[in-house]
Design a binder for these strands. Structure first.
Lengths: 255, 255
DNA sequence: TGTCGTGATCTGTGATCACAGTTAGGTTGG
DNA sequence: CCAACCTAACTGTGATCACAGATCACGACA
């Protein structure tokens, strides 16, 4: 089913900050107000569905009905159509020929290809991050790593928190590379692997978290501190590959 | 302005080929018809706009009106909305806060980031293609290369044909890597750089075509024939970098 | 002559209605 | 008891209408 709309959610998507015309030094009070969000309904629904997908709350194969989603979110069918169109364009959702729209079920081949692409793209982001990250950005990564370890080693393990912390850790790293378009592209990749990956982590948090993930994360942070791009890439590749191996062994993939 | 709808256009996007249920050997006649397109109107409009973007027929900064596009294509406003939503989700189009939707104008920083990403992603595709390409696929690349050289060295140079041949050449290469998701991701990148890149090539075909492009393409084909992944990557990187350098010098980029 | 106010016209956004296709469930005939 | 049909409810798609906001141009006032 569909979760309720959370009020603001602090959407991290494409920011719309635009100071518009800014003259020399007159009317200083007017420059304070920075163009309010103007977030359209369709965008909010998109963000809502994206959040559900990337956090693994929507299982692969799950069917979505435009009318049901619209009703659950308290909006008309129209914004939901727009949101589904966008996500379907990214293949984060798929619409079957004459049926409903559903969360795609990846084939083994597709999952493997996606993993290979992630190794290249996210590995590159880690490399660049190791080159140009500020100490504040490295601290942010460390903070999320601590949160991840805490959630993973708790008794019982807080799988939801671990999933969220893992995501924040990775994206804090990617944003440290200073390449916004690259970050967004990675977000699109996570939209595709999110359902299987996080659904699995949600089911078996200790297997993945207590093991190689923590080790890889520590190696990653050490590489960031030492400003060692090659080591950062290796650490991240190890992290992704370990998770992917685990998925391949346990998750149910099509065909 | 908006071009007219070309009848079929042989959409090369996400194929919808699906033989549906295929039983043993009964009703052989029914298996002939391969589930007809079932292409929705919105999808066709999307493909139409995508083609205009990737071929550089829509200039950066050009404004689009949903109603005008709808009228020009002879459809309602609805399918156009869907198409624009999809393309805007990929940032192939952008919708200003309270204004119209337009083709994005890249800043210099954005263009450089895009180029860096292309070097990584398309370079990887070239590497993989050199590993696994079949002879038929290599021949296809060679065929497009010949068409490109012919169009570029003609008098006067056929810039439209050169642009098209260049695109076919690159995508024939990428498809040879056998990674469909990667190809689609690259297509998304081209959607962003297409307007500036091809618009420029259209204006000054000889500068780019007669020079480094042909050399890079020849080196690329030689690398494919020799099954040398590293050389293929170098050749492609050289091709992209030369084009990007030319753009940076001549094209008018924002900010 | 320069500048501000103002109205007409455009923009995208959202809602509602109509429709063809498919699916699922219930019923009937074997 | 099983299978086939048939109806009813649901699906996404497309069109039309209504609305708030922004832009632009013209005209009036200083």
């Amino acid at each position: 089913m569909i979760a309720r709309v959370q009020p603001p959610a602090a959407e991290s998507g494409s920011g719309t900050a635009k100071p518009a015309g800014k003259r020399a030094g007159d009317f200083s009070a007017l420059d304070e107000i920075g163009s309010l969000p103007h977030e359209t309904l369709g965008e909010r629904v998109t963000g809502e569905l994206r959040e559900l997908l990337i956090s693994g709350k929507l299982a692969p194969g799950e069917k979505l009905s435009l009318r049901r989603v619209a009703e659950a979110l308290g909006v008309s069918m129209m914004p939901v159509r727009e949101a589904v169109s966008r996500l379907a364009a990214d293949q984060a959702l798929e619409v079957l020929p004459g049926r409903a729209v559903r969360v795609p079920v990846l084939t083994l081949a597709q999952f493997r290809e996606l993993t290979r692409i992630r190794l290249v793209v996210e590995g590159y982001a880690a490399e660049e991050a190791a080159k140009v990250a500020t100490v504040a950005q490295i601290d942010a990564v460390k903070r999320h790593e601590a949160a991840f370890r805490a959630a993973a080693s708790a008794d019982p393990p807080d799988s939801a928190a671990a999933v969220a912390a893992n995501r924040h850790l990775h994206f804090a790293l990617y944003e440290a590379a200073g390449m916004p378009l690259l970050v967004e592209m990675i977000g699109r990749l996570w939209l595709k692997v999110g359902p299987i990956l996080n659904l699995d982590m949600r089911h078996e948090p200790r297997r993945l978290d207590g093991g190689s993930a923590v080790v890889a994360h520590e190696a990653l942070i050490a590489a960031l501190r030492g400003r060692d791009p090659a080591a950062a890439r290796v650490a991240l590749v190890e992290d992704i590959r370990a998770a992917a191996d685990h998925i391949e062994r346990t998750a149910r993939l099509a065909e």
